[in-house]
């Protein structure tokens, strides 16, 4: 049976190194299967998060051959097995151990975004009426599985380390899902501009490229949010974009 070598990051906050492990390849195998096999037979203490093994929970994020991906949705058949496959933790977050990183910043951040606030019910029985078309738009954002791969790849966080100034693409998607929710009547524009730093995003679209849920983060969430904020305040890039897009469609 064919074999493959995995070069896995082992270590903790104090330091670490890559270690090579070789395991058998079975048909249909994904990277997470290989990690599990290695964990069960060669490295019982290899730290890794996972839950669903079907791309639904967003637990198994890692960098595979340098690309941020879900381990459970990365087939070995998509990778070249001639040389070792490198598997390392998301590099933008503090390391706990091996492939597990400290994601607590993300969870804290969410609590700082103003929660959903609906308009009064439409019907006497306390329910609302919504069109599927209006729901569709926000359902795209609500597909987010909180894998934080977009946060991992965004240069504002990864390279510039602006964790205190910028909430990152995941939470811009979250803000968009609230702002564009057909029932929501809260206004989040001021924080988006100030504390949440939407202006730091310069629309490189790296986040969109890695999103396993194929959410068009930049085009459908961030740019419309920037436009909303600009209606209230001034953001040069968003204004420019609006002119741009306006011209194209007009």
């Amino acid at each position: 049976m064919a074999k493959a070598t995995f070069r896995i990051w082992r270590g903790d906050a104090k330091g670490g190194r890559f270690e090579d492990y070789t395991t058998e390849v079975v048909p249909g195998m994904v990277v997470l299967d290989a990690i599990h096999e290695i964990q069960a037979t060669q490295a019982n203490d290899l730290a890794v998060r996972w839950n669903c093994k079907a791309g639904k929970c967003g637990s198994c994020s890692a960098e595979i051959n340098g690309l941020p991906r879900l381990m459970c949705m990365t087939r070995l058949s998509q990778l070249s097995l001639d040389k070792p496959v490198t598997v390392e933790p998301m590099r933008s977050f503090p390391l706990i151990k091996d492939l597990a990183t400290d994601l607590s910043w993300n969870f804290r951040l969410k609590g700082s975004i103003k929660p959903f606030k609906p308009r009064p019910p439409d019907a006497p029985d306390g329910t609302w009426r919504m069109d599927q078309a209006d729901v569709d738009r926000v359902q795209e954002f609500r597909k987010c599985i909180e894998c934080f791969l977009c946060q991992d790849v965004c240069h504002v966080l990864r390279d510039h380390q602006l964790f205190d100034e910028f909430i990152g693409p995941r939470f811009l998607v979250h803000a968009a899902s609230l702002e564009m929710h057909p029932l929501d009547i809260e206004d989040r524009r001021e924080e988006l501009r100030k504390a949440q730093g939407i202006g730091y995003c310069n629309i490189t679209k790296c986040c969109t490229k890695v999103c396993p849920e194929e959410i068009k983060i930049t085009d459908n969430a961030i740019i419309p949010l920037k436009e909303r904020v600009v209606d209230q305040f001034y953001d040069p890039l968003a204004r420019l974009l609006r002119v741009f897009r306006g011209n194209r469609s007009g």
């Binding site: 306390g126 069109d131 599927q132 729901v135 359902q139 929710h181």
Partner: peptide, 13 residues
């Protein structure tokens, strides 16, 4: 739904 869940809709919403 009152807490923000968005279910698929019937034609009458």
């Amino acid at each position: 739904e009152a807490w923000g869940a968005l279910f698929d809709r019937t034609p009458d919403g």
